[in-house]
């Protein structure tokens, strides 16, 4: 009885760690498959890249402008106006938008739009036994399905980060204009605080978010079971795990970046 209760309470944790381990193994296999010839995934890579681009550009545009305008824009401006320091909004946008919000909003939109589509697609193929058929026909699903999605999502998140930066900052400009303040001081504090480290840090972090989303979503799709309901469950889990992975990685990355580049801690 006691053993059965213990088993039941330990089982979910064991299952979780098993899945994390499997995702790590999939990551390793994907990287090895990506660099080891042959390279049959070019066509699929382009298709997946264009697919993610087509699906995400508009939701990301709306999200970044709205988020940039609402959260760091209006909220911070409202606070800074109290001190007569609205000009500092530009500097704040370096911290808020470049370092955190642009990569995060990009990752959330990518996971919710492209990641779920990947899980649903692979999950449906798994349920219809297409993935089994591929393997039986001597085709490696990691090389032919996971690698192109992995590379496409990494590239697209990296590029979308720049896109999100531009539209996020546009949200900040809107907030400044709403407060009837000139844009000159905004740009002055923005460029005083911005550094190349901020830019490459943001792009690198967002690219890694893309890798996390791709691995989690491919894994959940390829291990879906239990018919149509199982695919729905897999999609739901893929999004949740992607977000958890992104937040956990963000903590590690930010800590490491701040520790290794102390100059970006200084507010100018």
């Amino acid at each position: 009885m006691a053993r059965s209760v213990a088993d039941r309470s330990i089982a979910p944790a064991r299952d979780f760690f098993e899945q994390v381990g499997d995702m790590m193994i999939l990551t390793g296999k994907t990287i090895v498959s990506a660099v080891r010839p042959p390279f049959p995934y070019g066509g699929e890579f382009i298709l997946q890249f264009l697919f993610a681009l087509r699906l995400c550009w508009f939701p990301l545009l709306i999200s970044t402008v709205a988020f940039g305008y609402g959260a760091p824009g209006l909220q911070a401006a409202n606070f800074l106006v109290l001190f007569g320091a609205l000009d500092r909004l530009g500097g704040f946008f370096v911290l808020a938008s470049i370092r955190e919000f642009a990569p995060l909003v990009t990752a959330i939109v990518l996971a919710g739009v492209a990641g779920t589509a990947i899980t649903a697609d692979l999950g449906a193929r798994k349920i219809r036994e297409e993935l089994d058929a591929l393997q039986v026909l001597g085709v490696d699903p990691v090389k032919n399905l996971v690698v192109p999605r992995f590379l496409a999502l990494m590239l697209v998140t990296g590029l979308f980060d720049i896109y999100a930066l531009l539209f996020g900052i546009f949200g900040g400009i809107l907030a400044t204009l709403v407060y009837h303040a000139p844009l000159g001081p905004f740009w002055a504090t923005f460029f005083t605080n911005a550094s190349v480290t901020d830019l490459w840090g943001s792009i690198l972090k967002c690219t890694c978010y893309g890798a996390i989303i791709a691995i989690v979503c491919c894994y959940k799709g390829m291990t879906a079971s239990g018919g149509a309901a199982g695919v729905g469950r897999a999609v739901n889990q893929a999004v949740v795990i992607s977000f958890l992975g992104i937040f956990a990685f963000n903590y590690v990355f930010t800590q490491t970046l701040l520790a290794t580049h102390p100059e970006i801690n200084v507010i100018r």
Partner: peptide, 14 residues
């Protein structure tokens, strides 16, 4: 696996 041909339950067509 190239030795094998497999007919899956629902055909498993792509």
């Amino acid at each position: 696996r190239k030795k094998f041909g497999v007919l899956f339950q629902d055909g498993a067509l792509f």
